[in-house]
Structure formats: C-alpha cells, structure tokens
C-alpha cells in the first residue's frame, strides 16, 4: 500500500486535478502527504534591492500556491509542505529520495508549458528518474 505520497504542485490546472486525486489516495491509504512546490532559481547576478524583491515575490507566489493546494486537499491527517528553489524535477526527485516516498503524483504539464502537445519536460524527467511509481494526471 502507498504510505508516503508526494504531490508536486505548481498551481496549474493539471496540478489542481493531481491534488484532488492525491488527497483521495492519502485518505484511502491513510498515507502521509508531502506537497512540493519549486520556484525558479533567482539569478544571483541581480544586485540589491532587486534581489530581495525577486526573492520576496517568488516566496509570496509559493505561499499562494501552497494555500491553494491546502484548499484543494481538504482535511488530511498528515500533510507537510516543502518549498524549494530550482528546476521542479530536481526538487521533486530530491524530496522523493530524502523522504523515501512510495508514490509521486503530478500533472502531465506544468504552468507556462505548451498546452496540448508535449509531455512536460519536468514530468518526463521525474518519470525517468523517480525511485518510485509516478501517477500522471491531466
């Protein structure tokens, strides 16, 4: 049975569907759920005060995404959140490994990707390198 589920959440429509499904699975299996949100790396060539501004804008967006995720998940006994900087696939895979999750749930495409045609490159990377099964939702 799945005991330790990771939900990758970027706020996209696919991720919203993935969140509902992950919540259902966590309830059914009484599993712990960890929500992971990754934000784009902040370019370090930015000087002050721009650096601080970019960082706070990114973290505010991450907080909003997490609030949205929590609202979609509803009541769950064990939910944790992780906000990481970096390419989404790397962040997801890092958390999956550290927490030894046994299932990753994610959308087939994230925000800002071409709709319709391609499997998102981040999703593809996760599927290829994940240490556990990956449930792709669209």
């Amino acid at each position: 049975m799945f005991k330790n589920i990771l939900l990758a959440f970027d706020g996209s429509a696919h991720a919203q569907k993935a969140a509902r499904l992950a919540a259902d699975l966590a309830r059914q299996y009484q599993a712990a759920l960890c929500v992971v949100h990754a934000y784009d790396p902040v370019p370090d060539y930015l000087g002050e005060p721009y650096l601080q501004e970019v960082i706070s804008r990114r973290t505010e967006a991450a907080e909003r995404a997490m609030e949205q995720a929590q609202a979609l998940l509803g009541d769950l006994p064990r939910v944790e959140t992780e906000v990481l900087e970096g390419p989404a696939a790397e962040a997801i895979l890092r958390v999956a490994q550290v927490r030894q999750v046994d299932l990753i749930v994610m959308g087939t495409r994230g925000l800002g990707q071409l709709s319709g045609l391609l499997l998102g490159s981040q999703s593809q990377k996760v599927v290829t390198h994940a240490p556990c099964p990956v449930l792709l939702v669209r």
Binding site: L21, T108, L117, L118, L119, S123, Q124, V127, A130, P133, V134, L135, L136, V137, R138
Partner: peptide, 15 residues
C-alpha cells in the same frame, strides 16, 4: 510517453 500524452485518464508509470 505516447500513452501519457494521449490519455485523458491518469496514468501510473512503474520503472
């Protein structure tokens, strides 16, 4: 990859 792209229902991939 083709199935994941084409399917409208969730796909669970296993390595």
């Amino acid at each position: 990859e083709g199935v994941v792209r084409a399917s409208t229902i969730p796909v669970l991939t296993v390595k």
